[in-house]
Computed example of a mutant assay.
Amino acid sequence: MARLKVEVATETLRFAAPFRISGYVFETSDVVVVTLGDGMYRGRGEASGVYYMGDDVPAMCAAIERARPEIEAGPDRAALRDILPPGGARNAVDCALWELEAARAGCFVWELAGLPPPRPLRTTFTLGADTPEAMAQAARRDVSARSIKAKLTGELALDIARVRAIREARPDVWLGVDGNQGFVIDELPALADALKTCGVSLLEQPLARGREADLDGFVSPLPIAADESILSFAELERALGRFDIVNIKLDKCGGLTEGLMIAAAARQLGLGVMVGNMVGTSLAMAPGFILGQLCDLVDLDGPTFLAHDRSPSVDYRDGDIWVGPEVWGSPMAVAA
């Protein structure tokens, strides 16, 4: 492999409005953008890391700097999995390698991945936690949304009121909720029954990471998805018997290469597959869109929270996301 020039930039993305989940309120999101070039071609990758694991911008930059000599040597994507651990640093470098390889080959990333031409994907649009009335109003306002995911905070009675208000406001949409680790096992029967009554189709990460065994023997009336509980390929088997669906985020697992591996292995284990995102620009959503072609559920709405996105950008229309070849993953996207 040719030696690579490694450029690392950091950016602060500002939210259009404060965004609340269980235990956190976000107004900005810091990201790392890696550009790899060989003198003729280049590739890019964006990562925001995993905030609840301390995988922030300083940590990502430090990891890339430690691995800089090995990255500059031009590893392939398989070798990169041995150079960097799962997390945002590897995600940014891995996605840059995918785009660089596509530019060199004069093709699209989806072709490199052995996939058919991509199609628009139905994506969820996320409602940050707020009062039931405010969340219902937000659901009504986003008339184009066909799938909604509501953030909960672990306040059982209030969360149930939130879901009921959203469902009353939008009886037409697919509805899921994200507990963001806010509940304990003793609360799950009441929560799950109320969600089922409201026509909720998915309960994501109700318990804290590390409490997966608490789900042993729990029979849920609706599917439960693992997010924080399953970070990487190495942790996938802990989902068995506890979760129905695995939410793959490229920042967690370390890039599109490992994301595709998790999706294939999850299918073999009888698990459903979802692609999600940490907040990021269209550059961060584009690799997830490739993975989303293999998924049952898609949650790629990160740019909708931002005051400003990159240009060119992904297209949200009639509840779907579309990523054109000019955004990422083709020679067109990195043409000088």
Rank of each mutant, 00 (worst) to 15 (best):
W98M: 05
L36I: 00
Y316P: 07
A73D: 08
K196M: 07
P85A: 07
K151A: 00
R267F: 08
T304A: 14
S22N: 11
A234G: 13
V279Y: 04
R146Q: 14
A336E: 15
R209I: 11
R81E: 12
S311F: 13
T10R: 14
R3H: 13
F19E: 04
S229F: 08
E70R: 14
E258D: 10
L306Q: 00
V173W: 05
Q268H: 11
D55Y: 14
S29F: 07
T126F: 00
L283K: 01
A213S: 14
G259N: 12
W322C: 14
P331G: 09
L231M: 15
D38G: 07
A136H: 04
L260H: 12
D142P: 04
V298C: 08
P223T: 03
M332Q: 15
I262W: 07
I71H: 09
D301V: 00
P69L: 03
D94E: 13
D318M: 09
G217H: 05
L260G: 12
H308P: 02
A239D: 10
S313I: 05
G49L: 08
P206I: 01
V314A: 15
V273W: 12
A102I: 02
G88V: 06
K196Y: 08
W98Q: 09
D251L: 07
L240Q: 15
R238M: 14
I148A: 02
D38R: 09
V6G: 05
L191F: 06
I148E: 01
D216M: 09
I245T: 14
L127H: 00
G176R: 15
R81W: 04
A165W: 03
P171K: 05
E72L: 05
W174E: 15
A265E: 15
E258P: 02
A263N: 10
R81V: 06
R122M: 10
L297T: 09
P58H: 12
V143M: 08
G324F: 10
